[in-house]
Amino acid sequence: MKEINHYELRFSAIGGQGIITAGAMLAEAVVQYKGLYAIHSPRYTAQVRGGPTKVDVVIDKNPINFPKTTNVDYYLSTSEKSFRTYFQDIKPGAIIVLDSNLVEEFNDPKYRVYRIPLIETAAKEIGNVVTVSTLSLAVTAKLTGLLTLEELEDFIPKRVPKGYEEINLKAVRLGYSLV
């Protein structure tokens, strides 16, 4: 794994898609496996489901003073509206991951853009749409180098609801091989 001093991530979606959970799991996992400090702050709209939501994750090798993002290194989105709404403070050169079915073409040479059918893959290939949280986490872990496959294979079964361990492990392995 590369040496991390400070790293900022954002996940945006439509409330209910499960992307906030991906951010939460990422923060918990880097604290647990890497001994790093992390915060995550979800933002919801008044709508519980159906409104634009996001979660910001800040990772640092030291305790975090300012608990907000100012320079986002990695941005994943599964909704066109949310992607545009929260497109702020994205660092030039940032990694951008977009759900290829749900976010329109975005070709800005300032960023490294990946287009992956995240929700479709979760629903069809893995077999349950709720695994999009784990799938997105695995894609993020691979692209950023923040967590290894082995770490995710250890973390995910303990983190997900009972009875959903196997299908989420499938999502981890698929996500790690997709990119």
């Binding site: 915060i39 995550h40 702050s41 979800p42």
Partner: peptide, 9 residues
Amino acid sequence: EILAHTYEV
């Protein structure tokens, strides 16, 4: 609100 809602270590 920041201290109350931000998940931290």
